[in-house]
Design a protein around this nucleic acid. Structure first.
Lengths: 198, 198
DNA sequence: TCGTTTCGTTCGGCTTGACGAACGGGCAAT
DNA sequence: ATTGCCCGTTCGTCAAGCCGAACGAAACGA
């Protein structure tokens, strides 16, 4: 199977415990079940032998990139979702909290709110809302995460069952693939919204 | 080489013209040169035969995931950077400008400021700065782009040779791999900073 | 009870990816 | 010129990925 051992060297990707094979094995099975495909059906669509797929999901073997590519195409997902570790929940960082890095040159403070997971896409919105009926979002595509930093005003933001009240500077992140709301509590409430999807 | 043809089926990943092999070939070479490694040296670090690497970069063959993984580890990059297609300038969107999507349910307006390029990482900062000496940033790693949305106050932001004055709600994006500044022009100037690196 | 279908796994074979060694070229020191 | 070293490519061998076919299990209807 493996003729070499890539076990040493500094791991940039968050060391996935069992190496790439097991990671891909579980990823493929996860995506296949999410797509409601049988092993046989997926193999047919990907134009690979189902024996190949069977062994792959069993964590045996060491698939080639063409095999992997064919599977990703058939599953309708980017290849990277099969090769990078999975991830989710609500987290709030209040204005003034969080790890701050100060500048020596100027009065300048930056707070790291969220590091970007490998391979995610983050789309950036500016939101301006007025009090009244809250905006309830349908869940987006699975794997979506939203981040909101309130700029001005006040707002109730987060999962529909447990939204959080934000003041200017507050930050919240929550799953975007579950129902969630944005309800302005003050006039001219504005925020930055980042929609992150893998 | 390829025994199957994954050519059909709807392509979710933005069809990379020449299939996964060529894509990986150029990605590996690009990352290797970025890391200033010789082919021989990289092969040694990845614990793979240099012949394998040579053919891989030539666009021949069909590497296994273990080979790919070992290379990504040795290069110090996530695997996804080798399997997704690759990809800067100043752009400003003033508050109130830009494509706005309104909600039917509530007084809620979202403006798309920047779609995320495939495979980029975006790290999210909250910035609070006071007037005085501007904060001049050293250029970051090549391929970095920064985005700033001013929340409160006023600031001079952008490339050091041509910064732009921002008011609350204004958005700017500029290359992060060239010198750039953030100079607060009013007390308690705050902003959201997204650092995007490939 | 017996076919029929679909599921996922297991079994030989052909094909090919990965390996090490050998090769030719470029460069610097001797 | 010669030696040494590193570069990247080419070649033959061997292991293993991929394949199709055969297999047992489970579900459904006749």
């Amino acid at each position: 199977m493996a003729r070499h051992t890539p076990s040493s060297a500094p791991e940039p990707s968050p060391a996935p415990a069992a190496g790439p094979i097991m990671l891909i094995a579980v990823s493929v099975r996860r995506e296949r079940e999410r797509a409601r495909l049988s092993l046989t059906e997926l193999a047919k669509r990907a134009r690979i032998a189902k024996s190949t797929l069977s062994q792959l999901e069993a964590g045996l073997g060491n698939p080639s990139v063409e095999t992997l590519w064919a599977l990703a195409v058939a599953l309708g997902v980017p290849v990277s979702r099969l090769v990078d570790p999975p991830r989710s929940s609500v987290r709030v960082i209040r204005a003034g909290d969080g790890p701050v890095t100060h500048s020596e040159q100027a009065d300048y403070a930056a707070t790291l709110l969220a590091t970007c997971p490998p391979n995610a896409r983050r789309d950036l919105y500016r939101v301006v809302a007025q009090p009244g009926a809250p905006r309830a979002s349908e869940p987006h595509t699975p794997g979506t995460t939203e981040h909101v930093v309130l700029a001005t005003g006040r707002a109730l933001v987060g999962p529909i069952e447990a939204p959080v009240e934000l003041a200017p500077g507050d930050y919240i992140t929550y799953p975007g693939d579950a129902p969630h709301i944005f309800e302005a509590l003050a006039p001219d409430t504005s925020a930055i919204l980042i929609s992150e999807h893998i």
